[in-house]
Design a protein around this nucleic acid. Structure first.
Lengths: 245, 245
DNA sequence: CGCAGCCTTGACCATTATCAACGCTGGTGG
DNA sequence: CCACCAGCGTTGATAATGGTCAAGGCTGCG
């Protein structure tokens, strides 16, 4: 790796891309912001994981020893109440970070929703690398603030939107969520079940199902399969999402 | 300011504390992490604001030109739907930052809830300072991740808790929220109205009122005045907050 | 082909919102 | 100094949204 700089340009570029891919740097758009040696060090810390469907990445209350980066597939992040009620706080896709929050223990659980892969870093090593890499720290700060804005939008949804508005908001947001696997125009892939949608939107399975049926009846959406739909009237969907109808 | 280092120790310490106070550095616990020259530069960028009750600090959609730090009083942060429904996403107290999220425009509005004060920094200058001050960046990243964890807890509350559980959670959290003005043991100050509590908890004023009455009747809390109450049975309150009853 | 898991639909119910009236409190002006 | 008023909070009656319970249908896999 050390002679990387001295290789012909094309080769360096290729090696660079490989390094990005291996540790997930490309997926999380860090690639462009870091120089060669920083990428190599990041890569050296990465431990690759293959994820089965439903596999647990981390559990609320466990000692927070690792930081993850999703490199393919999708992941659900959630919190539970003692009686089993579940709130999914977010879905992660290729490129998303997980477990960055400081603290002794994880404040949430995370499981793969479909087969995929992730990178794992020991938190202590990762933090040391961050210390020495201001560019990485800046990226993480940017990400954290972006997530915070998304969390606020979700609070508005959970606290003040009707069931119809919630589902419409969710479907609208899904058109842009899965950054690494952009479906064709107007087509949305839903890697989660109705139950997961419900637990994300603060509703029950039945209510989600009823609202989907209604949107279908009103020709706002069309179901291609259970997990794929096309948005027939995007402007109408957006109006519903913002409570303008 | 430049000769600060050469002053006798006692004097430097005093000057340091003053600088902390002026720009809010002491309030946000940044004081201890920055060295003298960094504090002086932070202070030089700060513009002090006096806040009247209800005064608007920033409005959703406005160009995001400033970063704020609350130095006294309390602030509500909220998002609105077109028809006026409001979700308060957080309450800020002395020491809290506001407006750090990157982006062209603010994604939320913020208003003072009572007379107080704040510091304002031009975002461009602030970002430049951050770039040169890794310690400051680390603090902000830490804060952002902490806020993110709080936001996830609030999503669980809004999506899955009953009215009783929400109010109990809120009162429990309030015992530790206002860092700069810790009330005496078991006494909670509520700088917000019932309407603001309702908009924070995703309920109506009436429901909040009814639940408070119920908690009062069951001797879990005791109202000292409209804006101050004592928690008589903290363990019971906590059990209710987590849905263990 | 049959079963398991997920989804949909229907009937009924409960929690919380809505609408309405009344009470308290603090500030102001007669 | 007292009375009135405005704003906020409480309480009650009723309504509606979404939850619960139950039954049946689809689909993919063994």
């Amino acid at each position: 790796m050390l002679e990387l700089k001295s290789l012909p340009d094309g080769c360096a570029a290729r090696r660079r891309t490989e390094a990005c891919d291996r540790c997930g740097a490309r997926a999380y758009s860090v690639c462009a912001s870091l120089d060669e040696s920083e990428l190599v060090r990041l890569d050296a810390l990465a431990e690759r994981l293959a994820l089965g469907s439903g596999q647990v990445l981390l559990r609320e209350g466990d000692p927070a020893q690792h930081v993850f980066n999703v490199t393919s597939g999708s992941v659900r992040v959630y919190k539970l109440l003692p009686d089993g009620r579940r709130q999914i706080t977010g879905f992660l896709y290729a490129g998303d970070f997980l477990g960055l929050a400081t603290g002794e223990r994880y404040a949430f659980s995370a499981e793969a929703m479909e087969p995929g892969s992730a990178c794992r870093f020991r938190k202590s090593e990762y933090r040391a690398l961050i210390q020495e890499t201001p560019a990485l720290e800046a990226i993480l700060l940017e990400r954290a603030n972006h997530e915070l804005a998304a969390a606020q939008a979700q609070m508005l949804l959970l606290g003040r939107k009707t069931a119809l508005e919630r589902v419409a908001s969710f479907l609208r947001d899904m058109t842009t969520a899965d950054r690494m696997r952009p479906a064709q125009e107007g087509v949305v892939r839903l890697p989660m079940t109705r139950g997961e949608m419900a637990d994300y939107l603060g509703l029950t399975i039945e209510t989600v199902s009823r609202v989907m049926t209604r949107l279908k009846t009103e020709n706002v959406i069309r179901l291609l399969s259970l997990n794929e739909l096309s948005i027939e009237r995007p402007e109408r969907l957006s109006a519903l999402a913002d409570g303008e109808a």
